[in-house]
Design a protein around this nucleic acid. Structure first.
Lengths: 358, 358
DNA sequence: CTGAAAGCGCTTACAG
DNA sequence: CTGAAAGCGCTTACAG
């Protein structure tokens, strides 16, 4: 039987050992100067010997300075509900740490509106938060912001997409290239070599499409490395989001004209339900369909078998980890890991129901 | 922009409003009597109106009563390292809540020694922990213990296997039946109908084999419901763990004699690396092999491609959730969910590396 | 540069 | 049945 006791030595004890007052110990503990080198060193050496751990409860209680964290993320919409999950994760984390005086300010922007991103960011900066969670949807603008935050000494955690070049404390998200490889692996495992495949990209305004491209790249990489499938069998199509009915037509035409050879479709984002709809409408059920994200639409098609596999980005856990990382940094003052690559979850009809928190 | 402020009304405020002292408010807050009905009701009504939330930091700081949690789990061994992961998860959780005075006492037992389970349990009971995490490896004995803890009012969280019939506050683990279905789905997706399959059970001393059986059941259920594969194609073999070399011989014989028809093998626990070894030795690479748990051996074979899929039980997260559930119950005094079925993770060579915390 | 005192919000004997 | 006081371990003005 082992025991795991926690801090017993108190500031008071150290003060007594050093022959000084608690206030002085506190001053060296927090490096706020106004202590002579001599006493400072004496206290420091005592601390080192004594494996002192501050009582963080007493500390935050006494300091009673609130810690305001801001989240700059896209607003979830009916059309694109993805971002409600990271937010839910952030809020779940918040509930666990609010006792430490942590509060959350939410700043939303429109996923496809660069201007709204900048405006929301400006509002956030005005409030001078102690820490920031940011979804860097618009790469260039986000990079500039990052530099600004860095200059101001505000720690930032990036969520979902990674543009962190030294100026953020951590990134939380998925390894996109690798997730494309996972999709390819599933495709290849089910179809073997020499099956006609189609990759569909639903693109949007230029901006954060980097990780979408990476997924396609990963998919191709897998096939290059593991299959005798020659590239001509691997078509790709980009669908600009220009209005659903027009898109549907184009897609339908491409798919139908590729039959009967076409055996598998990989959709590089959460819009896979669109393709599923087309397959269903045309009563096509001999095509393997793989895409991303556990949206309600997608889950329905997965249950019906129209979609074969979904890859989850663990959006909720992304949110949870983001705020917890900031908490570890700001409140606990612990070293945090720079990269948090979350698992690439493979979801089927059979394991779907147990991915409630994802 | 939203704000998320937390408790501002203090006991002192309520006391003032009720025209009593803080001590009296505290007494009704904690139901420890010695208050007249009249003042009690007055205070209660004020509390209800005021959305008072206790400051849990101040509360645990002032109460300074330690909360000792005990974990009764199998000792991890070289042969069977599985249990080191739940323990790691428990310890990870502990680090986050030790500030609240939570400490952990570990009680180990031998996974295949019923007697050691009882002895370790006795030692634990002696120390009168405030909460218990228990792996109910030996079903009958564990049931009796559960009743005893229940009588003593000690809350228990069961981990990994579920025998909780009302006398535990929560279960954390995997849905075994469903995980078998996931394995079958992967098998069937890769091989189609009418492939010869083999299910291998490595059994041990009678005891907690319930969830292993469930896995086989799930596997068969999937095939019954989804395939035209008739049952004669689905052989099953139980290997009693009687010594590795004898087992290897038997297994090798079974596998070789089933060739060339045999196309897939499902191993119902983490011993899948044993089967992988036999396949490798005999240069067999046209058999799909699926098993459980990210042990080092298994991961190596997954990387080499001898094992095609592993299903993870998320052992670390089981541990983490167990202790956090107890913490929510004991320290935060919150209602906790009864069942925590963790996701059934599908691991391939391609997504293995991002399942570090699992 | 240093110490003594008051206070964070809650709990706990103790006195009445 | 109730209140006043001391204390949990730390922080923060303030006085010197």
């Amino acid at each position: 039987m082992d025991k795991n006791n926690f801090s017993r030595i108190r500031i008071k004890d150290i003060a007594r050992l050093a022959g000084v007052s608690a206030g002085t110990v506190d001053r060296v503990l927090h490096n706020r100067g106004e202590v002579s080198e001599k006493t400072r060193n004496k206290i420091l050496s005592i601390i080192r010997k004594s494996d002192y751990h501050p009582d963080i409860l007493a500390s935050t209680l006494a300091a009673r300075k609130p810690c305001r964290i801001a989240a700059l993320i896209p607003r979830a919409t009916d059309d694109s509900p993805f971002w409600k999950y990271p937010l839910a994760g952030i809020e779940e984390g918040l509930r666990e740490i609010m006792y430490f005086g942590v509060s959350l300010e939410r700043y939303y922007f429109d996923y496809s509106d660069r201007e709204s991103f900048l405006q929301s960011a400006a509002g956030m900066i005005n409030e001078k938060p102690q820490g920031i969670i940011m979804a860097p949807v618009f790469t260039e603008e986000a990079s500039l912001l990052l530099k600004d935050f860095n200059r101001k000494g505000i720690p930032v955690v990036l969520i979902n997409a990674n543009i962190c070049s030294g100026s953020c404390i951590a990134f939380v998200g998925q390894d996109s290239l690798q997730s494309g490889m996972v999709a390819a692996r599933l495709m290849h495992y089910g179809l073997g070599d020499d099956a006609d495949l189609l990759i569909i990209n639903f693109t949007r305004e230029r901006g954060n499409q980097g990780h979408i491209q990476k997924r396609e790249e990963g998919f191709r990489k897998y096939y290059r490395e593991n299959s005798k499938n020659n590239n001509s069998l691997l078509q790709q199509i980009n669908i600009a989001e220009v209005g659903i009915s027009r898109e549907e037509k184009i897609l339908e035409q491409v798919i139908l004209s590729s039959r009967p050879g076409l055996r598998g479709i990989f959709v590089t984002n959460s819009r896979v339900f669109r393709v599923a709809g087309i397959l269903e409408k045309n009563r096509i059920n001999d095509i393997i369909l793989i895409g991303y994200d556990l949206l309600q639409n997608n889950k329905d098609f997965l249950r019906k078998g129209t979609i074969d596999f979904l890859i989850s980005q663990k959006p909720r856990e992304q949110g949870y980890k983001s705020i917890m990382t900031l908490y570890h940094h700001l409140v606990l003052r612990k070293q945090v890991e720079r990269s948090h690559y979350l698992p690439i979850d493979i979801i089927t009809k059979e394991n779907l129901e147990h991915y409630t928190f994802t």
